[in-house]
């Protein structure tokens, strides 16, 4: 069983974690439908280093792991707050659709 190094709990069996998909940038609310579908539905399946969400179930803790999808090597893990530093606002659209 693979080990994943949790920034809070240290090295743990990967069975303690749930995979949460690639980290994707949320498009602006006024993006096109195509951009939205690309974000919500399509996966890149990158062969190489990707940033992924992982959830440590016993501590209910979302972290980010940089993993090489070719070698399955986990290069780095860190708390999500390193990537998501600021409060996100969704202002009401200026013009009503």
């Amino acid at each position: 069983m693979k080990i994943l190094n949790c920034p809070l709990n240290g090295p743990r069996n990967i069975s303690e974690f749930v995979w949460g998909g690639e980290v994707k940038e949320h498009p602006a609310l006024d993006c096109t439908d195509e951009q939205w579908v690309d974000y919500a539905v399509l996966e890149n399946n990158t062969a190489g280093v990707v940033r992924e969400w992982w959830y440590h179930v016993p501590t209910a803790y979302w972290i980010i792991a940089e993993r090489n999808t070719v070698t399955d090597e986990i290069i780095r893990t860190y708390p999500a707050r390193e990537l998501f530093k600021d409060r996100v606002e969704f202002p009401a659209p200026a013009v009503k659709p």
Binding site: V18, G20, H26, W53, Y55, A60, Y61, W62, A80, R81, F84, K85, D86, R87, V88
Partner: peptide, 14 residues
């Protein structure tokens, strides 16, 4: 639901 809520607030920082 709990996992989903935490996932989103890890990004929104509310």
């Amino acid at each position: 639901v709990y996992q989903h809520m935490l996932f989103w607030n890890a990004q929104w920082r509310l």
